[in-house]
Design a binder for these strands. Structure first.
Lengths: 191, 191
DNA sequence: AAAAATGCTTGACTTTTATCAAGGAATAAA
DNA sequence: TTTATTCCTTGATAAAAGTCAAGCATTTTT
């Protein structure tokens, strides 16, 4: 099965592309394999790509002044990731993107995406609609962060993404939820 | 000066529309005046519109089971607001949008926006690019929420939006930052 | 101008979560 | 299979923030 099937299905959930448009789109995709613990994005370098995960798992995290990690994105198959601010504004990244497992990713360069979105209206629609949905989801996470207790956020995540919760290290999940690893361990033990 | 100037300038920051496209776009805008404390969106009703503030201030908040308010958006002139999840998925809203001041807003219906985005490529580009920027910003807020102390979040907000911090009630700002009103009062007093 | 409602502050106390430190379990490397 | 490394757990303590309650100040309403 083509390595493009996943991403093309993803697009097809929103818009219909002609065969030639599909061909144009797949032609900008760069296939990359990364090993566990490898960095795909690093502070100081512009995040050139939107990345789609065909197989594997990746996280995007921020390393603060005290050396603590704060995870913004935990992504598995069929998810996109990048340092979005860096990608869009063409400024040096502030985050790391790190492979949590050996992964196969598809990368599309900013300039190529913009060029295609200018030319291909349905593709522009796809990114618009998909980003709007991501935005709606992002508000939900914000509400969760400002209104729920650590314990509530943990169980909410486990219910929503049971497969991910068991797949990534606990300290990664803790740093995603804004909880110390010790506290997360205690939350899990009392129940 | 036209009440449309602000929103048209906003669009012009991203794309160029022809006169007829501008005409088509402005024709879907509904002008609404709301009084302070009036609700523009309420739980149970679908959030039909994307709302743009010409003059005034609005907040979007969630009322939890314990009766506590959690503010997701504080918006003033030249900002958009809606219950994004409800607006996009056409499901009943979970949030309130409440005018913090007497306000003048421009409302565009979901169906009209979709129809125009289908027909007018530059408008689709506008919403895509703008939403992507909102998304990049949203990640910053997430990082702030999971990695910073209440005090840091407060000063970060005051530095970023000094005019808003002095314009909205303190308990609104507290509920936006995920802090109790009492704690915010104490944070302000020690400095 | 008086009364009511709203918003802010402060104190005392409680709860939650973080921190520091040590040890154990599991996994990966030699 | 032994040794390292990584990850998780647990206990003791400290810090941060929330809660409850009362009072004051400001604005709005009558």
């Amino acid at each position: 099965m083509s390595k493009y099937k996943g991403i093309l299905d993803h697009i097809a959930r929103y818009v219909e592309l002609s065969d030639s448009e599909i061909e144009e789109f797949t032609s900008i995709l760069k296939t990359t394999r990364v090993k566990k613990r490898q960095f795909i994005v690093q502070p100081g370098f512009v995040s050139e790509y939107r990345n789609y995960i065909v197989e594997g798992a990746v996280r995007v995290f921020y390393l603060d002044d005290l050396g603590k990690e704060h995870t913004v994105i935990i992504a598995i198959e069929d998810w996109f990731f990048t340092d979005f601010y860096s990608y869009i504004h063409r400024t040096p990244a502030e985050y790391y993107a790190e492979a949590l497992e050996d992964s196969l990713i598809l990368q599309m360069k900013y300039e190529d995406v913009e060029e295609l979105c200018n030319r291909i209206h349905p593709l522009c629609q796809y990114f618009r609609l998909f980003t709007e949905r991501s935005m709606a989801y992002s508000y939900k996470r914000t509400i969760s962060n400002i209104s729920k207790t650590s314990e509530e956020r943990y169980w909410e995540y486990v219910n929503k993404y049971p497969q991910i919760a068991n797949r990534v290290p606990q300290y990664v999940l803790a740093s995603y939820l804004g909880i110390s690893p010790e506290s997360l361990s205690r939350i899990r033990s009392r129940s």
